[in-house]
Amino acid sequence: MSHDHDHTDPPSDLELRVKALESLLLEKGLVKQDALNAIIETYEHQVGPKNGAHVVAKAWSDLSFKQALLADATATVADLGYVGRQGEHLTVVENTSDIHNLVVCTLCSCYPWTLLGLPPVWYKSAPYRARAVSEPRAVLSEFGTVLPEHTDIRVWDSTSEMRYLVLPERPAGTGGWRESQLQALVTRNSMIGVELLRHREEVK
């Protein structure tokens, strides 16, 4: 992959063909962006978040995997078969009791979709992109996430070359849980960093 900065590597022929058709149909008014978003939103939970949840649950269960993941996420998730098709790199950032990580793409909508599936519509919205950096606490509170004053909030700006995944804190009360049980707890939003995980009674 080229690291030349005066151009952007075009995506695959298939992606270009979809973009071409979509942009033509939108311009001609034959489809509406809102309608397309609504259809995709219905399915966005069906794709990747399970892959990301697999990585997170494994990191909670296996210390050496977690260390490898934090040191070189791209290679470590590739060993599990999760490889971005455009060769983008991945960094995993760990939440602790003192540090909370939040991921955004201020310029467009770069997203670790191999692990998280389709980006939610709000992730691509101009207000999120702008405000995640300027007022992350306010954005988090709109997602119902209120952090203690002393928590250090770190905002990570994705690019087409580097994507970020948040490793959320393992919820209390899950000692002795199997990896598959832990996996069911991990939400997409927690891996973007907009929500904290709780031990929910209904997940057994």
Binding site: V18, K19, A35, L36, Q46
Partner: peptide
């Protein structure tokens, strides 16, 4: 598919899917 719902490996697949659903729903 999984549990009777379509699944997508990559975003472009969902984009192509949504275009077909939208065109069908508008009667094209």
């Amino acid at each position: 598919a999984e549990n009777g719902e379509p699944v997508f490996k990559e975003p472009w697949e969902a984009q192509a899917f949504s275009l077909v659903i939208a065109l069908h729903e508008s009667g094209v």
